[in-house]
Design a protein around this nucleic acid. Sequence first.
DNA 1: TAAGTATGTTAAG
DNA 2: TTAACCTACTTAC
Length: 269
Amino acid sequence: MPEGNVIHHQARRLGRAFTRRAVVVDSPQGRFAGGAELVSGRVVRKVEAHGKHLFVGFDNDLWIHVHLGLFGKWQMGAGESPEPVGLIRLRIVSDASYAELRGPTVCEVLDASEKRAAVRRIGPDPIRKDADPQVAWERVHRSSAPIAGLLMDQRVFAGVGNIYRAEVLFRYEMSPFRMGRDVTRADFDELWRDLVMLMTAGTKRGRIDTVRDEHLPEAMGRAPREDRHGGEVYVYRRDGRPCLACGSEVQMADLQGRKLYWCPACQVT
DNA sequence: TAAGTATGTTAAG
DNA sequence: TTAACCTACTTAC
């Protein structure tokens, strides 16, 4: 259930484990589209993350493309690969370590041009140094959709998910319902800059923390928030509880099938 | 034990 | 707008 920061974090771990090593690739579950035998025995050249998509490149110019979706998970370890337990879609094994993939939405083999096409479909990713925020700005600027919806659109802000969209809007005190075309260039630049900062930090830590020092549990004498996503946040899944900045009740609503969280007092316009 | 929930995306209606 | 995908965990009974 990861956002882009987790995918980048995993790409770095997979890269460290497998780059320049020959690996055995198989699919104990047998549902690996294209077939593990196309890349098994090959040397891993590089591992890349683009938004929430992960690509493993091999020395025969083929790529494994993985999207975890809502349920997917990587499990990695050092040493011998254990006997497969449960449904493993994809397994990558070197002489030093192993990685197991369960429950992804996408797991397929692509050739070089298919991989390029897949990357082109993904919008600018605030975590990537080569991202072009101008592309995101033009899409936001022309849109009558609410900014909360645009932040979840992977062709606009790749890698942003439900936590980052709620948190960045809170941090910039922007209403989630403001239309894209009503977002000024200065607003947009501020949002983008904050996403770069938050998501880069989230990549290093492998978790999402968005709360400023003055609102941290230690500073406010409150209990640390132990939620499954692991980090300290302002509004995500805090509906019905007091806003950490103003004390108003955090609200929750359904927007395009996903839950949206915001403070009605801090995020007025 | 069953039902509900989740950091997501796509396709059908 | 809804269902489907598919896994693991939490909550309700």
